[in-house]
Design a protein around this nucleic acid. Structure first.
Length: 452
DNA sequence: GTAGCCTTGAAC
DNA sequence: GTTCAAGGCTAC
């Protein structure tokens, strides 16, 4: 957990005997209003990295004196060709710049004839307009990213650093096969003003809130373009959270391949360490989740109180949904930051056997739907505004509005993958159980944790 | 239709 | 005055 600290009744970490996971929930509001301090940490990191860049620049200074001072924008985030500048918000090449412009101007509707999985490379980018267009959106191209005139040097260097950092943090991105529509852009479609996004989408693509939830095979017609943008945005934000968890799936599969049973990790567990590990992990996720919710189109129109209510009502269930791929054959392959191996055994100890059984049943059901990561990302977003306890929410109108929008986005994404009515029904049924489960999980406390 | 090059104009 | 993204032009 590094220098991160979480507050357990303001007690020293080894005396957290009266703490419960509900305490973390109670910190959601202060975390939301304390956004500046979280961002400040990020800025510090960036500053450090800028310093590193500056050192690099000093070393390169002599070379630069003799060269024309053209800034290296790296590779095009859409096709990996040489980027000629920041176009429509992202480093991109002339080709993709022009393609994006033409697509917007003509409001073209593209179709993929090759299975919607085309690899976008400089040589192949002309092959499929649909996948190139999706790749443009996934990389973060948008008209909201337009900026005329000179861009400050420090901003460009920071953008380039973030780009490099992503590749280092997620080597899979180097593989072009994994780049299609999955790039977790650090400069995604701006959601500064989500309702303005809706407004602009409505003007261009005529999205209208549709109260009819989950209508399989319904044709959204002209809405499709806008819905696909929202689905892409959900997926981008989902991936930003998952950057810190993706490696765990590889580790889990490796353990399974080697036939390692998690019982091995049961011994020498210390109650305090386990509890601290769980709290630290939930706290860490809470911060990521708050960012996820704040950046989701539409949600920044809620005030911080409403946001806190929504987040608290869904924190644990969404945590489970983000990590559902780590539940394999009734076992939970998650290792906590404190290097404690989580498992079904520990889940039973932390949440009680009864709650743990419900958790694993739900994971089994959700995994049986075989949702794609993108469907899962939209499902999580939809869940945030679905059937929450409306009484506490001040801005009920916005809640209902977002519920309608994200119902359509979910329907769109499911229809795109030809999901059956059973999946739609299963999702609704599961979401009802998830609400109850959130309350059960927040009831976990240190006192009830008794290791064998 | 694509993409490289050029012009324009806003930001610095 | 300089820089650089958007948009125009045009060869392919």
């Amino acid at each position: 957990m590094g220098e991160e600290h979480f507050c357990l009744d303001n007690q020293p970490s080894d005396e957290s005997t009266s703490s419960s996971l509900a305490n973390i929930c109670s910190q959601v509001e202060s975390l939301i209003s304390n956004k500046d301090s979280i961002d400040h940490n990020n800025n510090n990191n960036n500053n450090n990295n800028n310093n590193n860049n500056n050192n690099y620049n000093l070393n390169e200074q002599e070379n630069k004196k003799s060269k024309a001072s053209t800034f290296n924008f790296g590779k095009c985030k859409v096709c990996k060709d040489k980027a000629t500048g920041i176009h429509y918000g992202i480093p991109s090449c002339e080709g993709c710049k022009g393609f994006f412009k033409r697509s917007i101007e003509k409001n073209e509707k593209y179709v993929c004839y090759f299975g919607y999985k085309c690899v976008i490379t400089p040589k192949q980018r002309k092959r499929c307009k649909y996948c190139r267009w999706r790749s443009c959106l996934a990389a973060g191209m948008s008209f909201e990213g337009i900026k005329m005139g000179r861009i400050p040097k420090i901003e460009k260097e920071r953008a380039q650093y973030l780009n490099d950092e992503l590749v280092y943090a997620n080597p899979a991105m180097e593989n072009t096969e994994n780049r299609i529509c999955v790039a977790p852009s650090k400069s995604p479609i701006s959601s500064k003003s989500a309702l303005s996004l809706y407004t602009s989408l409505n003007q261009c693509y005529n999205i209208s809130p549709n109260p009819q939830v989950f209508r399989p095979n319904s044709s959204c017609g002209t809405n499709d373009f806008g819905l696909s943008i929202l689905a892409d945005k959900c997926f981008q934000l989902y991936q930003e959270v998952m950057v810190d968890y993706d490696w765990q799936l590889g580790r889990a599969l490796s353990l399974i391949r080697k036939g390692v049973k998690l019982d091995l990790f049961r011994y020498h567990l210390i109650k305090n360490d386990v509890w601290q590990g769980y709290c630290a992990e939930i706290f860490s996720f809470t911060k990521k989740f708050i960012k996820f919710v704040q950046n989701t189109p539409g949600f920044n129109q809620f005030d911080s109180k409403d946001l806190a209510i929504l987040i608290k009502q869904r924190l644990f269930t969404c945590y489970g949904l983000f990590l559902t791929k780590l539940v394999i054959d009734g076992e939970f392959y998650m290792i906590l930051d404190s290097k404690i191996q989580s498992s079904r055994y520990l889940m039973e100890k932390v949440y009680t056997k009864e709650v743990s059984d419900i958790i694993f049943d739900l994971h089994e059901r959700i995994n049986s739907f075989k949702l794609t990561s993108k469907e899962l990302s939209v499902f999580i977003t939809w869940l945030l505004v679905s059937e929450v306890d409306c009484d506490e929410i001040f801005n009920k109108e916005l809640l209902v509005h977002l519920r309608m929008y994200y119902s359509q986005v979910l329907t769109y994404e499911f229809n795109l993958n030809n999901r059956s009515q059973d999946i739609f029904n299963g999702i609704i049924e599961t979401s009802n159980l998830l609400s109850r489960l959130n309350r059960m999980c927040s009831g976990a406390c240190y006192e009830n944790l008794n290791l064998d």
